[in-house]
Design a protein around this nucleic acid. Structure first.
Length: 263
DNA sequence: TATAATT
């Protein structure tokens, strides 16, 4: 082999493998898994599912800022039948050591993502911060005490929260890896992300908003989530927007909890 | 449709 060819090959690294044969037996063998413990690693996820067949790929979705697991992942099996067996065996089951059951279902095809969903992501880029009505110290103090009583939450400084990864998995209502998660109930079926940005933006730094939709109809299920960076601003938004009348609906706004239809 | 999440 000429020297030039050897040099060329040594500079490039390729992964070469045979394409998997396309057939019905491996079609739709991809699973979506939610409710995973935040501490579960990709390796542990594979160990859990490997008893049902040969895993082709796996993934755990993580928060882009903190790297903390979002409790959601994917498992692609070699064969459709393996995926079916994994659903039978693991859906609704608690992995050893877990406190909550996991959900295992066939994954949606990414290509069928709606144009509406794609458009809504355009709203997620600005991290605009409006000067909220949070400058009066006495007002802040009273509000914090009110919320401490209501939710049993001590007021943590953002520095403490962000600096302690050991807090991952602790049950602080509304607190997530990147901020304070707020549950918004009674949105109309045609709500989209922009309404949440408009409602919460004036109270401070909004990291993220999400309207939860039915996959088939693409209509809002009546609720959504807003993540805000700062506790004070989240608390003020909740105090102001809970009971707020939006059109002919009265919103219910609170820190996100784990339990279903509490309050 | 009362606490998600779709690489």
């Amino acid at each position: 082999m000429p020297h030039e060819a050897v040099s060329f090959l040594s500079l490039e690294m390729y992964k070469v493998s045979y394409a998997r044969p396309s057939s019905a037996s491996i079609r739709d063998a991809n699973l979506y898994v939610s409710g995973l413990p935040k501490t579960m690693t990709q390796k542990e996820l594979e160990q859990l599912f490997s008893q049902y067949g040969r895993i082709i790929t796996s993934r755990i979705l993580v928060d882009q800022v903190t790297g903390v697991s979002r409790g959601v992942g994917f498992i692609r099996f070699d064969k459709r039948i393996e995926a079916e067996e994994a659903i039978k065996g693991l859906n609704g089951q608690k992995p050893s050591g877990a406190t909550e059951p996991i959900t295992v279902k066939f994954a949606n095809n990414p290509s069928q993502k709606s144009s509406q969903a794609l458009l809504s992501q355009l709203y997620q880029s600005p991290n605009r911060r409006y000067p909220g009505p949070l400058h009066h110290q006495a007002q802040r103090f009273r509000l914090d005490n009110l919320l401490n009583m209501a939710y049993g939450v001590k007021r943590f400084s953002p520095i403490t929260i962000d600096g302690m990864t050991s807090l991952v998995g602790m049950n602080i209502p509304g607190h997530t890896g990147t901020g304070w998660c707020i549950f918004v109930y009674n949105l109309s079926p045609d709500s989209d992300e922009s309404v949440l940005w408009q409602l919460f933006g004036p109270f401070g730094a909004v990291n993220n908003v999400k309207v939860i939709r039915d996959f088939n109809t693409n209509k809002c299920k009546g609720f959504g989530f807003v993540t805000m960076t700062n506790y004070d601003e989240a608390a003020m938004a909740i105090a102001s927007l809970n009971g707020y009348r939006l059109g002919d609906r009265v919103l219910q706004v609170s820190f996100k909890t784990n339990k279903a239809h509490k309050s």
